[in-house]
Design a protein around this nucleic acid. Structure first.
Lengths: 346, 346
DNA sequence: CTGAAAGCGCTTACAG
DNA sequence: CTGAAAGCGCTTACAG
């Protein structure tokens, strides 16, 4: 009778399946190098098949609350804080704990994938949530091999197929923002996006383009700028746009922070918002509510996105399947005080 | 020869010291109830003396990076974010990981102290950092018994003597804020603080009082209000102050968020800041920089405070002594655009 | 309530 | 490079 699958796996059962002795399995687990490559391979296969866990790992998994790793690619904006709150609030409800780390933006993808995945596996981490991080396929595959589920929130680059990600309807949001401006009577509308390579920024730009085209408005290349989603991007972008011979009467900024930068630059030029310049942000963070004037913005349900990411990781860790590998949460345009009909149209 | 202190403690060495058998020690450790109270006591004493750790604990301590628990009493402000960034940045530098949890404000002190401290000890946590939390002496003592160092940042209530806390020079900061206003020519200065019981708010109020007295200005009870450090406190407080028969010409708010509330209420009343009303905030968060007008504010080095908290916990966990149980970081008045001489004085 | 004995799961030292 | 043998640290089942 084959009991290997029902009993809790031990070195002995792994050894039996792999057709080697117990000490050999022990060596493989402890990373000794005096094991032949072929033998090592067979043992690793058996370990994976039986789902072997060391006593420490089992103890961690069964006795202590589950730990999930959360990595932010920078943690300095209202945007990050909203996602973080969604995750930590959900964590206390689900009796999970969150190990938070931050990484200097862009540095994550140079982390050694084997080391990183082993570290998480050895520490008994149940899963990993990445926020706006760039990771490599190699890294994602290493986690998959270690059986550590990964969910990426708002990936800068689209994750390779087969990996789980959570985002918002960036295209629809961008379209809604620009349609709002068009309905107010604007025809000259600028766009200040994020990095050119960023998937979410690209989608917002395409929403912008779609809205213009749907209303038969010509797309002007000099009205389309990229940036970094930060405040200086808004200052620089607005400076360029407002210096044009025919400046836009409205600007759609790719983030609330960038919109604040536009606001600064507008003030420096004695332009009133919204009387002289209409402005729409993106994210719908606290900033939109706290700025003067309060910012019309495309709101993303950041807390919900965080909560959903954690729930998805836990379900995957639990062996459940997700209905969909990519979930998009709906954005909503929140009209506040930074948009109005253009001066010429009044 | 007594080798008990030099060899790594095992059940056998504990049993020998306690004068019992190995199985009995095992039972005590596993919380079985078939051990006589006296025997249990002797065993526990021996365990503590030798500093016994289970293999799981030892493995956690030596192989995985140290974990420190971080608990925020609410996590929704620029203030929290700045402290959090200080801690996480320091954590990556020190090769420590941070387990973040948030708690609904005020709920922490009703957490069972035994359960909480055991949970942290069993999970091998190296220490605990609490931010603006109210905790009980009982809880702090439970952690001390479990040998888990605790550092409190900006305790709402002063922690009992013997426990470690980190704050800023609230009194000096309050005094500097008000002296700045007095130097500008203000005589009618309002104060909107935090909760009456909060130590830090009390210190700021006393700084306010000291500045007034030093300049021979009468203290008016109706100019002194308390709140919750949040935005609505500012709105409500400003509404009261500005409705007085003789309203203040300047307001010192106990937090930047409260100052933003004051700004809102001033705008609602068509008062210009700083022309009609001068305003000083406290904390020196991003908000002060991003608001319009930019806020004159008493800046606390929040990131440094976070970093210092983590360093202190690690030193304590390492068996080192701290020079001082309470550290106060210097605040600095940052003058921006929300303060000016009063209209009457121009 | 206690502990001698058996046993479990893993590691180590070493012979081949 | 492999595994039989010894051993380590802890737990369990049970006799007293």
């Amino acid at each position: 009778m084959n009991r290997g699958r029902t009993d809790k796996p031990t070195l002995a059962s792994v050894a039996e399946l792999a057709g080697v002795s117990v000490p050999t399995v022990s060596k493989v687990i402890n990373g000794r190098d005096d094991v032949a490559a072929g033998t090592r391979g067979r043992v690793q296969l058996a370990l994976a098949r039986l789902g072997y866990e060391s006593p420490v790992q089992r103890r961690l998994r069964t006795s202590a609350p589950a730990l999930v790793d959360l990595v932010f690619d920078g943690l300095n904006t209202s945007y990050s804080l909203a996602i973080l709150m969604g995750i930590t609030n959900c964590a206390s409800a689900e009796n999970v704990e969150v190990v938070l780390s931050t990484v200097t933006p862009g540095k994550l993808k140079s982390t050694n994938h084997l080391e990183w995945s082993s570290r998480l596996a050895d520490s008994g981490r149940r899963g990993l949530i990445l926020v706006t991080s760039e990771v490599t396929t190699e890294q994602l595959e290493a986690f998959e091999r270690r059986n550590i589920p990964v969910v990426v929130i708002d990936p800068l680059n689209p994750p390779p197929s087969g990996f789980v990600s959570i985002g918002a309807t960036n295209w629809a949001g961008g379209k809604a923002a620009v349609e709002h401006l068009i309905e107010l009577g604007h025809r000259r509308i600028g766009f200040i996006g994020g990095p050119d390579a960023a998937e979410c920024s690209m989608a917002r730009l395409h929403g912008y383009l779609a809205a213009l085209r749907a209303h038969g408005i010509d797309v002007r290349d000099d009205y389309i700028l990229s940036g970094n989603f930060n405040l200086p991007s808004g200052v620089r972008g607005a400076s360029k746009l407002l210096s044009l011979a025919e400046p836009p009467t409205a600007i759609f900024a790719g983030s609330d922070l960038t919109a604040l930068g536009v606001l600064d630059e507008a003030r420096r030029r004695d332009l009133r918002v919204p009387e002289d310049l209409s402005l729409v942000g993106f994210d719908g963070t606290d900033l939109a509510e706290q700025s003067v004037p309060r910012l019309t913005s495309v709101s993303q349900p950041l807390q919900e996105m965080g909560r959903s990411a954690l729930r998805s990781v836990l379900r995957l860790a639990n062996g459940e399947e997700l209905e969909s590998l990519h979930v998009e949460f709906a954005t909503t345009l929140v009209v506040r005080d930074s948009t109005a009909p253009p001066a010429s149209a009044v």
